[in-house]
């Protein structure tokens, strides 16, 4: 078997804004064709990490390779192989959807068909509408359309579905699945854990600038975090809950105890990615708070957002 080098390789990445360390030693790699979800609370260092990979920010330390190129030195040919959907879009947009896509398609050596992209992004009815007249969710679709128009090998999606209604989100998932089928490698950040679970092959969870866990979507957090729970309401009306690796047996025992009567509000709950994520992030916060009692340099999530750091700098300047 021929070993294909990873599309993204990050080793011991560090990034400081002044005295604030936003990213403190993150390592991961993304294989060709893989969809990798980078998850974490606001200000955890996700956007900083992704912007370093996109070539927008310089790093303070560590090694980064994206499509075999150091993003810091990435030229136009390298950029032509990337698709970037930024976290924010706020262009004034005095152009129509079609005009904008046609114009951007012209930047790339081998772009997708503009009409196909408009259809895939669900923008057919808005094709001749100026972008400034679109709703927030529709604008976001334009962002996604612009991100894929150049037929990228690697697609960055930074919170792509913010402002989408449920139907639009499902359409978007279908679009991403078709890109995956074509072999596009995808780096996704999102606050919707169901989205990460739907689309991702693997996930990394980042908190306080560190990667606190990484693994396959349905294995991350370890077996212990995924133990199912059986929940029901007893005769006194109080909710009872039991963690068990054998939920069927617990339910059977319960039915036996009740002489075959139906237990009220019976549920078997398998922890979702969201549950696993929340327990990991909370666990991390508890650790940090405990460490904070002995150290004056306590990490606070807010202070590590790039924007906050930049604002601080602007105030000083």
């Amino acid at each position: 078997m021929i070993s294909i080098p990873p599309v993204v390789q990050v080793r011991d990445l560090h990034k400081s804004y002044g005295s604030v360390e936003a990213v403190r030693g993150v390592s991961f790699s993304i294989a060709a064709g893989e969809t990798f979800a980078l998850l974490g609370p606001n200000g955890a260092g996700k956007s900083t990490t992704i912007e370093i990979l996109e070539g927008y920010r310089d790093r303070t330390g560590g090694e980064v390779s994206v499509l075999g190129v150091d993003p810091h030195r990435g030229g136009l040919e390298w950029k032509a192989r990337l698709g970037i959907v930024l976290q924010t879009s706020g262009e004034s947009g005095n152009v129509t959807v079609t005009e904008q896509l046609r114009h951007f398609a012209g930047f790339y050596p081998n772009p997708r068909n503009v009409d196909e992209v408009i259809d895939a992004a669900g923008l057919r009815e808005k094709a001749t509408t100026r972008i400034s007249k679109l709703s927030g969710g529709q604008r976001r679709r334009v962002d996604v359309a612009l991100g894929i128009i150049g037929r990228p090998e690697l697609l960055f999606l930074d919170e792509p579905t913010t402002g989408f209604d449920p139907e639009a989100r499902h359409q978007f998932w279908d679009l991403i699945r078709s890109l995956k089928e074509e072999g596009t490698t995808i780096l996704l950040t999102t606050h919707y854990l169901d989205e990460a679970a739907q689309l991702g092959d693997r996930a990394g969870i980042i908190a306080g600038g560190r990667l606190i866990d990484i693994g396959l979507i349905d294995e991350i957090g370890g077996a212990d975090a995924r133990v199912p729970r059986v929940r029901w309401r007893d005769d006194n009306g109080t909710v009872r809950e039991e963690r068990t690796t054998h939920p069927a047996r617990v339910v059977a025992d319960l039915a036996l105890r009740l002489n075959g009567a139906e237990p009220e509000d019976l549920e078997v709950i398998r922890p979702s990615l969201e549950d696993v994520y929340l327990s990991l992030v909370r666990g991390h916060e508890v650790e940090v708070a405990a460490a904070g009692k002995t150290s004056r340099h306590r990490h606070t999530g807010e202070a590590t957002t790039p924007d906050a750091a930049l604002t601080d700098k602007d105030v000083r300047a």
Partner: peptide, 18 residues
Amino acid sequence: AGEKSDGTLKRLGGTPLS
């Protein structure tokens, strides 16, 4: 100055436009 602050330049900077 407007393109700088509304994200137009950032978006163009991520494309192969020289």
